[in-house]
Design a protein around this nucleic acid. Structure first.
Lengths: 243, 243
DNA sequence: CGGGGGTTTGAGAGCACTCAATATTGGTGG
DNA sequence: CCACCAATATTGAGTGCTCTCAAACCCCCG
């Protein structure tokens, strides 16, 4: 699989400091802030609110207005859509460095909720519009991220339309690994799973039981050394030396 | 189903005139042009190329660079992604008024090909960047369309993740109807199908045979009065009077 | 009229689903 | 510190929707 995601070394994005200024922000180079005029940064530090959100906080609700852009600094977010009959589809997960609410809207197309205690930076679109006038790169940055989300959604479409259960689960593990996985002493990759099984199943278009069985299968096959509620341990992938 | 698509009355977007100026363009209000400065329009008419593209023309190819924004004035376009093993997923269809290539890119995430003889307007991103400096609404318009595409992709994800075959086919008919369907003397809606069955199946994540069977089922159930290669005829939907 | 791509129909198999029981985890109170 | 409970996750058995393989049909075009 060839996933258009960020490289593994992006993992230091998980560091955060509530008190440090933007210049030291761990995810700045991936967010909209990098495009702002240097002299805007002090105002950014004043105007934006870096805040803590506890697990389960709704940042945006399907059908309701949203005037805020969020930059996720630490934690994780679940995006989901509700069907009229109550069924739910998880349309994506966000990890540190990702953005939410690229554009002001009257009726949000999806719901966004934190999966764990998280840190976020907030910008009103009023402020962003001003910043965009000074620095057109701000608009481009937003467009860039919006397009990036679109491309991820297209990958997701391919996943759901063409892949069988085991391929879906492997893909999921791959993207979470790239976003927040890290090397583990036990000679493998430790991949945190901040979301419950039901969320993963709803993301992959599988039933809870099928996901569970497939994870078990991957463990038996040796692709996974360990699977538990909050993380899993991947065996080293193919490119390890054979001798 | 409650689809966030454009209303039925958008169908006059299919009219086109190769020789008329932008002021009379049938899809201008939905495209980026509406955001441009009034005094830019004459230059738009000079700089952009309104061109005819015959069926099967590749406007953008997965993995290759693209520097052009296209506005589809007449016709239809298929968006698709290729898997490493040759399987193909159709990720979307574009109809008059839709745009393609909102942002310049080095490696396009998907392939875009015309399904039938079509008319398109082309803008280089160099020109668009200039227009955006004069009129910031241009950037916003691009962001708006990019977000719109993202939302359609999310609907698609819900479709593939949660819906059974017959629901998928009904959804497909609904979106094509809203885009290019029109009233028919035989008291129904005539919905053109500019794409072959295989494309529809690859869009819906179904096998060709399953799609064909499901269309037959909808015909037997009376939802469709007629199904043939190039169009179908929908029976009037539920809101007709019962007496 | 004959050829050929595209589409439809048929029979049987398989993967994921459904329903159900068991096991594990995490939190709470004795 | 451990017992207990509720929520979450895993495992099992059987079913069904969609897939696979195959043949027939149809329409368009030469």
């Amino acid at each position: 699989m060839n996933l258009p995601l960020r490289p593994r070394d992006a993992k230091e994005g998980t560091r955060v400091s509530r008190s440090l200024g933007c210049a030291l922000c761990s995810v700045r180079e991936r967010s909209v802030c990098t495009a702002m005029h240097q002299k805007d940064l002090p105002e950014v530090e004043q105007r934006m609110a870096r805040r803590h959100a506890q697990a389960g906080t709704a940042l945006m609700t399907e059908g309701e207005p949203n005037e805020t852009l969020f930059v996720l600094v630490k934690g994780s977010i679940r995006l989901s859509k509700q069907l009229e009959d109550g069924r739910r589809q998880v349309t994506g997960f966000l990890f540190p460095g990702d953005m939410l609410g690229m554009r002001k809207t009257q009726t949000a197309a999806y719901t966004a909720e934190t999966l764990e205690d998280s840190y976020l930076c907030r910008f009103t679109h009023g402020f962003l519009d001003q910043a965009a006038e000074r620095a057109p790169a701000v608009s481009d940055r937003l467009l860039h991220r919006a397009q990036h989300e679109y491309h991820r959604a297209q990958e997701h479409i391919v996943l759901l339309g063409k892949r069988i259960a085991i391929e879906r689960v492997q893909y999921f593990i791959e993207i979470v690994d790239r976003a927040i996985g890290h090397d583990d002493p036990a000679r493998g990759r430790l991949v945190p799973l901040p979301m419950p099984r039901q969320d993963i199943a709803d993301y992959l278009g599988l039933r809870l039981e099928t996901l569970s069985r497939t994870l078990g299968q991957l463990r038996k096959q040796g692709h996974l050394l360990l699977v538990n509620k909050h993380f899993l341990l991947r065996a080293e992938t193919g490119n390890a030396p054979l001798i």
